[in-house]
């Protein structure tokens, strides 16, 4: 149980309060969530007892500058959905969080910082080549932030101008269920990004197949197999490893097809 609560007056003060036994809290949907504490207990991690409240500190603006879109880390999922400026794919990703209650609480920065494999947002953000601006480590890409398991305070998310539509897909048993797989595919004339969640400890980008997807040499069944061979999921409540490999491959192959169809449609 949380024993101490710090309520800093500024981001700077919040960063100063951060130590190995304190934790930032934005919306609270992660740190106040029973399974989070259960999971820490199961792996022998110490319980979070001291939190630094960020709710009144983090920016919640959406602004466009020089082609890039700047999203305040304190924006909630629902605010992303309600914004007219946020890319459709990111809105769709936020909408995958089935509970409106949670969407009203969970923040964009918190979702990235939680770095969960089943994050609905991370595959999309990586596909969109998003960067995060941190309070004390500068700007870095989201992919690096999660891969290196950073815990620096995210203040802003920057979406550069990218071409190609980001196509998302999710597999789950029911509307409120934990996902079995989450995929994001974005293909443009000169790059392809393919990302999948729920198949390892972090969301992963499948760089090894992106080039072949971009040049069109990897499609259909062969792409399904290539994805399956590239990931090594564990069997769990959301499905067997075999199923997760198949469904991830199938969703990505389908998204790639849709992406090329869209491109050819545009070309025509």
């Amino acid at each position: 149980m949380i024993q101490e609560v710090y309520n800093p007056a500024s981001i700077k003060e919040a960063v100063e309060l951060k130590s190995s036994d304190t934790c930032y809290m934005a919306g609270g949907t992660q740190l106040n969530w029973t399974p989070f504490h259960e999971a820490r207990r199961l792996v022998g991690k110490p319980q979070i007892e001291k939190v630094i409240l960020l709710q009144n500190l983090l920016p919640r603006e959406v602004k466009k500058e020089g082609g890039a879109l700047f999203l305040g880390a304190g924006l909630t999922m629902q605010e992303l959905i309600d914004s007219t400026q946020v890319p459709e794919a990111l809105q769709k990703a936020a909408g995958y969080i089935s509970s409106r209650n949670i969407r009203n609480m969970a923040t964009l920065g918190g979702n990235i910082a939680a770095n969960r494999s089943e994050s609905f947002l991370l595959p999309c953000l990586i596909a969109l080549k998003a960067d995060v601006e941190t309070a004390n480590e500068g700007i870095m890409c989201v992919e690096k932030y999660i891969r290196d398991e950073k815990d620096s305070l995210i203040t802003q998310i920057i979406l550069p101008e990218v071409s190609g539509t980001c196509i998302l897909d999710v597999a789950r048993k029911s509307s409120g269920a934990y996902p079995s797989s989450i995929t994001a595919v974005r293909i443009s004339d000169n790059d392809a990004v393919i990302v999948v969640g729920c198949v390892s400890s972090h969301v992963v980008r499948l760089k090894n197949i992106e080039a072949a997807v971009l040049d069109g040499s990897l499609r259909g069944e062969s792409l399904v197999k290539a994805v399956s061979d590239s990931i090594d999921p564990e069997s769990d409540l959301q499905g067997s490893a075999v199923y997760k490999k198949y469904i991830s491959g199938t969703m990505i192959a389908h998204s790639v097809d849709l992406s090329f169809e869209e491109q050819s449609g545009k070309g025509a």
């Binding site: 949380i2 609560v5 309520n7 809290m25 919306g27 609270g28 949907t29 106040n32 969530w33 029973t34 399974p35 939190v51 409240l53 709710q55 629902q78 509970s99 409106r100 209650n101 949670i102 009203n104 609480m105 409120g176």
Partner: peptide, 25 residues
């Protein structure tokens, strides 16, 4: 776990789950 919604309140005009909040928030 805040899945069932029995803990719902409106806070500052937004529907939220009170179990996922500490009082200080």
């Amino acid at each position: 776990y805040s899945f069932a919604g029995s803990d719902t309140i409106i806070m500052d005009g937004k529907i939220v789950s009170s179990s996922l909040l500490i009082a200080a928030q």
